[in-house]
């Protein structure tokens, strides 16, 4: 019974590590191969985040089964990276728009004010009191 658990854990950890390595490689290959900054933004922010999630889950299972030490540090790192990856992607896209995209090329926002990268929200229309 114990042998079976160890074998299953070994297979799961190995599969997770291989999948994570492939995703990490694909993410960085996309960074080199794709031919436009906005397209290049997709590869690292999605594939590499998935790759690192695989590594961290594999290390969680490994330390729980083989080292008899159930730890949740890895989940902390996974959650942190999954939360921050969209924020960094949004910031990089915004700075790309700021430097390379003209405001006239963008469609209208159909709201009371324009795109946040170019226009500041008017002082009297701010919905939240920021003071």
């Amino acid at each position: 019974m114990l042998e079976d658990t160890t074998l299953i854990a070994e297979i799961v950890v190995s599969v997770l590590l291989v999948v994570a390595g492939v995703f990490g490689l694909v993410g960085s290959l996309g960074l080199v191969k794709l031919d436009d900054t906005m397209r290049r933004l997709h590869a690292p922010t999605k594939a590499t985040t998935l790759g690192i999630g695989g590594v961290l889950i594999a290390s969680m299972i490994y330390s729980a089964v083989f080292l008899d030490r159930l730890s949740f540090h890895e989940l902390l790192i996974t959650v942190f990276l999954f939360l921050t990856a969209p924020i960094t992607a949004n910031f990089i896209a915004k700075s790309y728009m700021h430097r390379h995209v003209d405001e006239g090329d963008l469609p209208p926002t159909e709201g009371p004010y324009g795109w946040a990268v170019y226009d500041a929200v008017p002082e009297d229309e701010r919905p939240i009191d920021t003071k």
Binding site: L31, T37, T48
Partner: peptide, 22 residues
């Protein structure tokens, strides 16, 4: 451009974290 460099540095940080965990 500079935006691509930021993207490459961000990806390098993520890959370094993966290597450290391995």
């Amino acid at each position: 451009g500079v935006v691509d460099r930021i993207l490459a540095l961000d990806t390098m940080v993520i890959n370094a974290i993966a290597l450290l965990n391995l």
